[in-house]
Structures are given as structure tokens and as C-alpha cells.
């Protein structure tokens, strides 16, 4: 049994069958990559996992509990965090505040009317956020306005905001999209370290095969809304079905 079990998920938008009969099993403490050509339904699948979309058929179980019909904040409280394709952070706030907000969400739940006690008096939250900033090497940027940082730093901040909640499953939507090779390698190292030291299971959508093969222990290939194969990286590399999906059928 994996920590995330997707069974028979289908989703239709008007005349387009975006997903059909998708099965996926993500084992605890592994990095599981979902790859596939454009339009294969990767992002739709991800949106079904976090509550942004509700699939028409099938079930999504996280740690034995169904996530279907729950809103994104409830699913996050169950232990699933998400990193977006373009970093979603609180641009108007400082880096420190950005990291403190998820700490409050972790400690106090989805709503708490803390309207009178000053934020600076919540020492435990401050320590938690401070430690996280040190871990991702951003402590010297703590008072910067988040929107003024480089894209790489924003990505790193978003990652920190997810990690500080100690999620059990981290979903990453093309975490290296648009990055230079050096930044990509830094991100790979960061993700590797997270997976090894923090016991966080990861499901990652990625186009860059270099990233996929450096990180993933299992790979699911999605094409036209259905999974073609689920295999280890070594077995994926030469798989005829995968070639077919990416390059089209061989002409005779």
C-alpha cells in the first residue's frame, strides 16, 4: 500500500477526456515522477490530488483517507503540500512572514482568531521559521520583501514554506521549469537532500529528463490521459511504449 493511492480516476472537460482510468501508487519515502508529453493530463491529475478539481470517477486515498470533496486547505492539513510551476508566495510580505504563515497554519489549524496577541510574542513560530530559513540558507534575506527576490530564491522560499509544515507528501509541479542548468542542479540537490533527511515522500511532474532520472525512484508515464507504464528509471529509458508516446509511432 502506498501513501497515495489513485484508482480509476477519470476527468472530462466538455468533449475532452483529460484523464481516464488513471492508477497511481506512491510509496512512502520515495520520489515518484510523473512524466508525459504536453497535454497528457499531468497537471489535471495533480489538481485532482490537491482539491482544485474533483474527478468524475475513481478514488484518491491519502494515508487511508479519501481526499475527494475536500477543499485545498483541508487537504493541506492532512499533510499534502504543493509547489507550483511559477512560485506562489506572499509577494507583499517579508521572507520571514512568508515562512511564519505556514507555521501558524501548522500549529493553529485552518482558522484561529489570534487578533490581540502580537505576532512577535509567538516565540515558537519565530524559532520554527528561523530554523527553516537557516536550513535553506536564506537567513540573510529574512527582512526582504518576497516579490523583490530572484525567481530562484522565490522557488526556494516556496519550498521552505512547504517544508516548514513537515508535510508527508510534497507535490511538485515542474520545479525547474525555466531555470538555468546551474539552478536546476541546485534544485536537484535540494530535493535530494529533503527526501533523504526529512522523510518526505515526493510526487514530481517534470519535463526535464535530467531532473527525472537524477531524482526519481519510480516513474509513471502518462499519455493522452492514461498511464502507459509505471517502472523504475532504468526500465523506462529504453521502453518502446515511452518512445512511442514521446516521438510518435515509428514509420515503416
Amino acid at each position: 500500500m502506498g501513501i497515495l493511492e489513485v484508482k480509476g480516476v477519470g476527468k472530462r472537460f466538455g468533449g475532452l477526456q483529460a484523464l481516464s482510468e488513471v492508477n497511481l501508487s506512491v510509496k512512502e519515502n520515495t520520489v515518484h515522477a510523473i512524466i508525459g508529453p504536453n497535454g497528457a493530463g499531468k497537471s489535471t491529475l495533480l489538481n485532482c490530488l490537491v482539491g482544485k478539481l474533483i474527478p468524475d470517477t475513481g478514488s484518491v486515498m491519502f494515508d487511508g483517507q479519501s481526499v475527494l470533496g475536500r477543499s485545498p486547505h483541508e487537504i493541506n492539513q492532512m499533510g499534502i503540500s504543493r509547489v507550483f510551476q511559477t512560485p506562489e508566495i506572499f509577494g507583499d510580505l517579508t521572507v520571514m512572514e512568508n515562512v511564519m504563515i505556514p507555521c501558524f497554519a501548522k500549529r493553529d489549524g485552518s482558522f484561529e482568531l489570534n487578533a490581540i496577541s502580537p505576532t512577535r510574542k509567538h516565540g515558537d513560530i519565530r524559532d520554527m521559521a528561523e530554523q527553516m530559513l537557516i536550513d535553506v540558507n536564506m537567513q540573510d534575506k529574512r527582512n526582504m520583501q518576497a516579490s523583490s527576490m530572484s525567481r530562484g530564491d522565490k522557488r526556494r522560499l516556496e519550498m521552505a514554506m512547504c517544508l516548514v509544515q513537515k508535510p508527508r507528501l510534497l507535490l511538485l509541479d515542474e520545479p525547474t521549469a525555466g531555470m538555468a542548468r546551474a539552478d536546476t542542479n541546485n534544485t536537484i540537490d535540494l530535493l535530494k537532500e529533503i527526501n533523504e533527511t526529512r522523510d518526505i515522500t515526493m510526487a514530481i511532474i517534470e519535463h526535464d529528463m535530467h531532473v527525472v532520472f537524477s531524482l526519481a525512484q519510480r516513474i509513471t508515464v502518462l499519455a493522452q490521459g492514461t498511464p502507459l507504464v509505471e517502472e523504475t528509471p532504468d526500465n523506462i529509458k529504453g521502453h518502446p511504449k515511452v518512445r512511442e508516446a514521446y516521438l510518435g509511432e515509428a514509420q515503416v
Partner: peptide, 8 residues
């Protein structure tokens, strides 16, 4: 980001 951070 707020709702994906677990806040309602």
C-alpha cells in the same frame, strides 16, 4: 497560496 498552506 493561502489555501494551499492549509488556511481557510
Amino acid at each position: 497560496r493561502m489555501s494551499y498552506t492549509g488556511l481557510n
